[in-house]
Each structure stands twice: as structure tokens, then as C-alpha cells.
Design a protein around this nucleic acid. Structure first.
Length: 586
RNA sequence: GCGCCCGUAGCUCAGUUGGAUAGAGCACGAGCCUUCUAAGCUUGGGGCCGCAGGUUCGAAUCCUGCCGGGCGCGCCA
């Protein structure tokens, strides 16, 4: 995927006022009213939580007062007049412990409405990341079968996060780590070998315990039969294992890529664990660590808690991860001299870190225990230059009309991702996966997610967009000329409150990108949809408040511009989530 | 035993990285359809933000210690 071209970034209203505030503080410094050089890092210009407090609020006086040697309200009294002098400011008041509340001229909000419309799909884009390179590694399911629902959430969270970061001005690489070096791949190869014999007409009986019984290996066996004929049908394992591993992993990756495509997910890079090992990268990582005095031969203590009869003290090649906050040093090499998973993973992360300023991994919550060691390795290998954030994604609990869906791994009867996408659609799956914080468990009920009601956030947001679209269709039918310039000054305070909410979108995107929390977009869109529905319903009680007033074209034009802007934000937010906006509800 | 995550309304969860009187949906009570799709909206009750300390102008948010739940815990992946 080509890196995004540099674009014109719109300066948000909040950023403009942050700049005004800075000017005001500079002026106070020049006038000798404020000690120069005070740290302004924590100064913020934000929308106040309570709309009755005004359009904007700043905590500047409270943050700076102490070090300025004064009290917050006194400092606020110095700052306020400077802000009040601005043309676009209608009034300024000092409130509570020292908040400075700013009321803006309504024209600023109508201008912002215009900015949303002219910004279009680009509204909300920022240069927060300043082109920093971020590697997002997600999915990385073992290549031993098709994707099931256990993989789904991390896939969507990772993909949405990648999109979010791109939108916030980062250069993003979407990467998949293929665990093709471990023992599970041998089991895959043996399973494929049986299917190969089956395809040749041999009787294979039941698939033995421990191998992969799924039907998805039958086509793989067939292809192997076509390629090799009887060549390996009765050959010892040593002759075919390596070849069959390669062939079957490749086939499984094709399956997985097809599943991911159903969700609209396309990784730019597929890194192979086997290749990492074969390339000598693990040796290099080990030597780098050794050079830093972080490698030694040693014996680990027996694990506490559950007693393991088989435990014997063994000397291993260990990495001093305890230096970086881990609770135990971790083996890079097994006692037989081969690499541990961790050893290869450390090298793999070094490889990623050489191409990035920041690493993000999306992992299942069951891997929580391994986060510290890999962060320790990244820190040690990059001398702290590259940060690694590991987002842990909790389970999805599947329900069908309130009843838990049972899954049995042994019989291979797991719920596949493809089945779910086929049943409820890509957009529903993607949206639902982002309706919780990643580290909180998520319930997914097949009945609820397609329900047409406000309990269902997907529907609720889509319905708001569909209503907006229907307005434009209706207006055309009513013969209202929407091409004419709208006079936005016709919008009243309640309508501008909608703009105010919409104008927060860029801040939401930046906040979500910084926190690596794509679910914030989903919650924001629900709020925005609620505001739209509420405004819409005012027209039920009072027809003069409807968006569409057949005999008042100028007012209708203004209100439809407003609706368009809300629709634009909904579309932009949904796009970040990888969800298409509905034109109408069917 | 140790580590990580979590604890907010009866239930399911948000909470803008430390801000003002803690929010939403469900459920419960009371209302709004000859409609711009009521597939929606308005309104009421409901809170020791697990407990106890600490940090400061200010804590659901940060720190410490408890209590409770989940996940994990030598060479597996």
C-alpha cells in the first residue's frame, strides 16, 4: 500500500483558539504580568463538559497559577480580557476554581459547518503523528486452519487502529506474523499428508487425536496428490515433512487471507517465523543482547503454584528481562539448542523496530503474561528508541437469541469468521467488534446485532445516516433547489449545538489515535446519531422545526447543509471503522 | 505464591489521559405517530465511582495497601 500523500490539514477550531491563548499568554509575559517561560504542556482548550458553560473552556489559569505565584482566579482575570478582545469571541467568563469559559460568535460554528462540508472525507485528518512510522501487527493467527471468531476481534481492532493512525498522520505498516516454525505446523503437515493419501484412494480411517480433522484440508490433500502422485504415499515422514509443511502453510495462509478479505482486511506484510530463524536474525539479536551483558547460561526456579511433577532444573540460555521489570528471566534457547518462541519473537520485533518508530501488537488477552518479556526485549534491543504497545483483546462471547453458542475445538466445530460474516454482514461484524474497550469482554448476539432497534448501535448509527440521505431525496422531490447557496445564519442555537458536537470529531480522532482506542469512534458516532435523532423528533411536536419545510426553500437549504455535515461526519467515522454508511434502511 | 487486566445506576457499559453538578442504553414509571421512515424522541426515579489512606487548587482517573472477579505463570505457541 502506498504511503499517503501529504495533504492539506485543516486547523481545527480548538487548535486555533489554543494558538490565540498562547498569544495572550505571550502578551502577558511581555507586559510583565506573567513570569516568562512557564511550562504550558498541560494547558488545554476544550469543549466544556456542560454546554451551558459556553463553547470553549481553558484550564490555563489553574495550571499556571501556582508557578506564576498567584491564584487561579486572579490569573484568569488577566487572561480573560485578552481573549475577550478577539473578534470571534462574544463573551468570556471566569467560573468555578478558575476555568475561563468562552462564548463564540455563532458565525464561528457556521464557518465550522462549512469546513466540514468542504473538508468532506478528509475532515478529521490531522498531522498529529508527523509522519512517524508505526508498525501494527495484528491477527497473526496460526496458519493451521481458517479463521474463527476468536480471531475476529483482534483483526477488526487492529485494522481500525491502523486506519485511525493513518488518518492522524502516521505512516502505518499492517503486518501479520506467521507462526510457521513451531510444532503445530508439523501436525498440520501430517494432517495434510493423511488427506493426500485419502485423495489417492488410500484408506486413512479416523484422523488421529492431536491432528487437524477439519475438511478444509481435503482440497490441500487433493492438490498434493495432483502434484506428487504416489511419490510420498508410503514414504517415511522425513522425506516429505518439510515439503508438506511448506505446501500446507501456504494453503492455510490463502484461506486466512480470503477470510480477512471478507472483513476488508489486507495486510501489507506477512513475516514468516521460519524465515526470521533461517535468516540468522535470532543469532544477531542474541549477540546484540550478549554484548549488552544481558545473556547468561542459567537455571530457572521451579514455577510456583500448580505443582508440575515433570519439572527438572535445566540450564538454558537466558535473557535478563528482570532488568526491565519482568518477574523472571526468559529463555531464548531451549536445552537442545533450538530457539524458543520468545527468542524468535524478540528477533522478529527487532526486525520490525528497525523499520519503525513505534510498534503496536494486538494480542489475545491470554497472552498477557508474555507482554513484559517482549517489551523488555524491544527496549534492550533498541536502547529504548522504539516503544512497543501491546493491546490485549478480550474474548467475544457468542450468543444466539440469548443462548450461549457452544464451541468444541476437538470436533473442529468452531464458529468460523466466514460463517458469521455470511450471516450478518461485514459492516455489522466490524462495528460490533468496536463497541467495547478492547480489554473488556464483548457479547455478540446473532439476533441482536441485526435487530432494527436502538438497542443495536449499528442500526442506530446507520439509521441516522439513512434519515439524512432520505432528506435530500425528499427535498429534490419537493422541488427545492439544493444547489443554491445556503444562508447558514438561519440556523438557531439548538441546530448549532449539533455542529458543535460534529466539530469535536477531529479531537475524538486524535484522542483515539493517541490512546490506541478505536472504540471511541463508535461511541462518539452513537452520541452524534442520538443528537441527530433528537433534533429530528422535534419536528414531530413542532412541524416548523423539521429539516424539510416545503414552502421555505432558504431555511430548508440551511438545515440540509447541517444534516449533510452530520452525515459527512458519520460517514467519516464509519470509514475509519471500515464500515459502509447506509443510504437507506431496507 | 507471583504477574497482568478489571471493579462506575438493578443489568450491560462510556467517561475527552487530573477538571466544574459522574453519563448513555436496557429494565421500571409517565408522555409524543392523519410522520421530514415513531426502526425514533421527551421526561421521572435510581450512585459511598469495590474499601482505606496518600499526592494537589481539584481524583472515578495518579500512588500505596487491602477486598472481590477474570486471564496467565520453566524449553508449548
Amino acid at each position: 500500500m502506498p504511503s499517503p500523500l501529504p495533504r492539506e490539514i485543516q486547523v481545527t477550531l480548538y487548535a486555533r483558539f489554543a494558538a490565540h491563548l498562547n498569544d495572550a499568554l505571550d502578551a502577558l509575559e511581555r507586559e510583565g504580568q506573567l513570569a516568562p517561560g512557564l511550562e504550558r504542556q498541560a494547558v488545554a482548550v476544550e469543549p466544556p463538559r456542560d454546554a451551558s458553560h459556553g463553547d470553549l473552556a481553558t484550564n490555563a489559569a489553574m495550571v499556571l497559577a501556582k508557578r506564576a505565584g498567584t491564584n487561579p482566579r486572579a490569573l484568569a482575570a488577566l487572561i480573560a480580557p485578552k481573549l475577550e478582545a478577539l473578534d470571534s469571541v462574544r463573551s468570556v467568563e471566569i467560573a468555578g476554581p478558575g476555568f475561563i469559559n468562552i462564548r463564540l460568535d455563532p458565525s464561528l460554528w457556521t464557518e465550522e459547518l462549512g469546513a466540514i462540508l468542504s473538508g468532506g472525507d478528509e475532515y478529521g485528518r490531522s498531522d498529529l503523528g508527523r509522519g512517524q512510522r508505526v508498525n501494527v501487527e495484528y491477527v497473526s493467527a496460526n496458519p493451521t486452519g481458517p479463521m474463527h471468531m476468536g480471531h475476529c476481534r483482534g483483526a477488526v481492532v487492529g485494522d481500525a487502529l491502523a486506519a485511525l493512525l493513518e488518518h492522524a498522520g502516521y505512516q502505518v505498516v499492517r503486518e501479520y506474523y506467521v507462526n510457521d516454525a513451531g510444532g503445530q505446523v508439523d501436525f498440520l503437515a501430517r494432517s495434510a499428508w493423511l488427506r493426500y493419501r485419502e485423495a489417492l484412494g488410500h484408506d486413512i480411517g479416523e484422523i488421529p487425536e492431536g491432528l487437524y480433522p477439519g475438511d478444509y484440508l481435503k482440497p490441500v490433500g487433493k492438490r498434493l496428490a495432483e502434484e506428487f502422485g504416489e511419490l510420498y504415499a508410503d514414504a517415511p515422514e522425513g522425506e516429505w515433512l518439510a515439503t508438506f509443511r511448506k505446501r500446507s502453510v501456504a494453503a492455510m495462509l490463502e484461506l486466512i487471507k480470503a477470510d480477512l478479505a471478507l472483513l476488508g482486511i489486507h495486510h501489507a506484510l506477512f513475516a514468516s517465523e521460519a524465515e526470521v530463524q533461517a535468516s540468522g536474525a535470532v543469532d544477531r539479536a542474541l549477540e546484540t543482547l550478549r554484548g549488552k551483558g544481558l545473556i547468561y547460561q542459567g537455571v530457572l526456579e521451579a514455577p510456583k503454584g500448580e505443582v508440575n511433577e515433570d519439572w527438572e532444573p535445566v540450564e538454558l540460555t537466558l535473557f535478563r528481562s528482570t532488568r526491565f521489570g519482568d518477574d523472571q528471566d526468559r529463555p531464548m534457547k531451549k536445552s537442545d539448542g533450538s530457539w524458543t518462541y520468545f527468542g524468535a519473537d524478540a528477533a522478529y520485533h527487532l526486525q520490525k523496530a528497525e523499520q519503525a518508530d513505534q510498534l503496536i501488537n494486538i494480542w489475545g488477552a491470554d497472552h498477557a503474561g508474555t507482554v513484559k518479556r517482549i517489551q523488555a526485549a524491544v527496549q534492550a534491543l533498541t536502547d529504548g528508541r522504539v516503544a512497543l504497545d501491546v493491546k490485549l483483546v478480550q474474548m467475544v462471547r457468542l450468543f444466539r437469541a440469548g443462548e450461549p453458542v457452544k464451541m468444541s475445538k476437538r470436533s473442529g466445530s468452531f464458529v468460523t469468521l466466514a460463517d458469521v460474516v455470511r450471516e450478518v454482514g461485514k459492516d455489522v461484524v466490524r462495528f460490533m467488534m468496536l463497541t467495547r474497550r478492547a480489554d473488556a469482554p464483548l457479547d455478540f448476539d446473532f439476533a441482536k446485532v441485526v435487530e432494527a432497534s436502538k438497542d443495536n448501535p449499528v442500526f442506530y448509527v446507520q439509521y441516522a445516516h439513512a434519515r439524512i440521505r432520505s432528506l435530500h431525496r425528499r427535498a429534490k422531490e419537493a422541488g427545492i433547489d439544493l444547489a443554491a447557496t445556503a444562508d447558514l445564519s438561519l440556523l438557531d442555537d439548538e441546530e448549532l449545538a449539533l455542529v458543535r458536537l460534529a466539530a469535536q470529531y477531529p479531537r475524538i480522532v486524535e484522542g483515539a489515535a493517541l490512546a490506541h482506542e478505536p472504540h471511541r469512534i463508535a461511541f462518539y458516532l452513537s452520541d452524534l446519531a442520538a443528537a441527530l435523532h433528537a433534533q429530528w423528533n422535534k419536528g414531530n411536536d413542532d412541524p416548523s422545526r423539521r429539516f424539510l419545510i416545503a414552502d421555505n426553500a432558504p431555511l430548508t437549504r440551511a438545515r440540509l447543509e447541517l444534516a449533510s455535515a452530520i452525515g459527512q461526519i458519520v460517514r467519516n467515522g464509519l470509514a475509519l471503522m471500515g464500515v459502509a454508511a447506509a443510504e437507506e434502511m431496507l
